[in-house]
Computed example of a mutant assay.
Amino acid sequence: MTWQQTVEQTVTGMGFDLVDLDRSAGGLLRVTIDWPWQPPATDQAVVERFVTVEDCEKITRQLQYLLEVEGLEYRRLEVGSPGIDRPLRREQDYMRFEGQMVDITLKAPIGVTGTEVSANRKKFRGTLERAEDGVDWRIVWSDAPEPKPGQRVSKKRPPVPLQAMNFSLDDVQQARLAPIVNFKGRQATGEGPNG
C-alpha cells in the first residue's frame, strides 16, 4: 500500500473525504479534507457541514502517528478544508456544485461551433450545469465585462448573450469553484433586510 492510499484510508476511516493530497519537494505534506456529501432527497433542504479546526487537529494527530509508524519522512504536515476555490475532481463534486460559478481549464482547446469562442481557448469561468444528455457537463458564461463597482447599468440595455459549451470530465485538466466573495454579507440578491 502506498503512503497516499494509507493517508486516504485513514481520512475516510475517520468519516471524512480526502479532497486533495500534495507533497512538495520542501517536505510539506498538505492534506485537504471535507465532510462526505450525499445528494439531498427531493423534499429535504441542503444542510452543509463545514470542517472545523478541531476536525483538522483530530486528523493531524492521527496522521502524525500513522506516518511515524510508516516511516514516511516529511518536515511539516498541514491538514485543512478545501476553501472557496475548492478543486472539483470527481463526478460527485460536479453534482454537488451544479449551478455554482466555476473555473475550468481543459486539456485541449475545444472550439464551440456557431459561437464566437476562440478555437484555441482552454480556460473558462461560468456556471456549471448538467448537459441535456444527462452524461456530460456544460459551462455557461458571458464574455461581456462586469460592470465596475458603483457603475449604473441601464435597465434598457439589452441582456448580454450567454454562451455554452458541453464537456466531459475526461476533457478537464483542472476545475475549481470560482473564488467569488461578496463583501456585502450573505444576503441573497433581491432579498430585503427582513428576508
Rank of each mutant, 00 (worst) to 15 (best):
residue 57 E to K: 03
residue 40 P to H: 00
residue 175 A to C: 09
residue 23 R to M: 15
residue 117 V to Y: 05
residue 9 Q to I: 02
residue 59 I to A: 04
residue 34 D to E: 03
residue 34 D to N: 04
residue 181 V to W: 11
residue 13 G to Y: 00
residue 194 N to M: 03
residue 31 V to W: 01
residue 116 E to T: 13
residue 32 T to E: 10
residue 122 K to W: 14
residue 101 M to A: 13
residue 80 G to I: 01
residue 100 Q to V: 01
residue 2 T to N: 08
residue 173 Q to N: 06
residue 180 I to N: 04
residue 151 Q to E: 13
residue 105 T to M: 06
residue 14 M to H: 05
residue 101 M to V: 12
residue 89 R to L: 04
residue 144 A to L: 12
residue 52 T to H: 07
residue 71 G to E: 00
residue 67 L to V: 11
residue 143 D to R: 05
residue 157 R to P: 05
residue 163 Q to V: 13
residue 150 G to A: 07
residue 138 R to C: 07
residue 39 P to A: 15
residue 188 A to K: 10
residue 137 W to D: 07
residue 144 A to S: 13
residue 189 T to Q: 07
residue 96 R to N: 02
residue 162 L to S: 10
residue 141 W to I: 01
residue 132 E to W: 09
residue 63 L to A: 06
residue 54 E to R: 02
residue 179 P to G: 05
residue 78 E to F: 08
residue 63 L to E: 03
residue 64 Q to V: 10
residue 65 Y to A: 08
residue 48 E to M: 05
residue 109 P to G: 12
residue 8 E to V: 06
residue 20 D to Y: 00
residue 10 T to Q: 08
residue 189 T to L: 12
residue 188 A to W: 00
residue 191 E to F: 10
residue 46 V to C: 10
residue 7 V to Y: 00
residue 50 F to E: 11
residue 135 V to H: 10
residue 118 S to G: 12
residue 190 G to E: 14
residue 84 I to R: 12
residue 11 V to C: 06
residue 125 R to T: 10
residue 26 G to T: 02
residue 17 D to M: 07
residue 119 A to R: 15
residue 129 E to S: 03
residue 172 V to I: 05
residue 27 G to T: 05
residue 182 N to C: 15
residue 191 E to N: 06
residue 110 I to C: 06
residue 128 L to S: 11
residue 8 E to P: 04
residue 32 T to S: 06
residue 37 W to I: 02
residue 129 E to H: 12
residue 88 L to C: 12
residue 179 P to W: 07
residue 52 T to A: 01
residue 97 F to H: 09
residue 34 D to S: 00
residue 55 D to Q: 01
residue 115 T to F: 14
residue 27 G to I: 00
residue 40 P to I: 07
residue 45 A to H: 11
residue 195 G to A: 12
residue 132 E to V: 15
residue 13 G to P: 09
residue 114 G to N: 14
residue 5 Q to T: 10
residue 80 G to D: 09
residue 71 G to N: 07
residue 96 R to Q: 09
residue 22 D to T: 04
residue 55 D to P: 12
residue 24 S to V: 11
residue 71 G to C: 07
residue 48 E to A: 15
residue 18 L to K: 01
residue 12 T to Y: 06
residue 195 G to L: 14
residue 132 E to F: 09
residue 82 P to K: 03
residue 107 K to A: 08
residue 129 E to M: 10
residue 118 S to E: 02
residue 124 F to M: 05
residue 163 Q to F: 13
residue 187 Q to K: 15
residue 34 D to K: 03
residue 78 E to V: 04
residue 2 T to M: 11
residue 95 M to P: 14
residue 18 L to E: 06
residue 130 R to S: 06
residue 167 F to N: 06
residue 184 K to N: 13
residue 94 Y to F: 15
residue 33 I to M: 08
residue 172 V to D: 11
residue 160 V to N: 13
residue 170 D to K: 08
residue 167 F to W: 01
residue 119 A to H: 06
residue 70 E to R: 12
residue 53 V to H: 08
residue 27 G to D: 01
residue 192 G to H: 04
residue 4 Q to F: 11
residue 61 R to P: 04
residue 122 K to V: 14
residue 160 V to M: 03
residue 83 G to N: 07
residue 34 D to R: 03
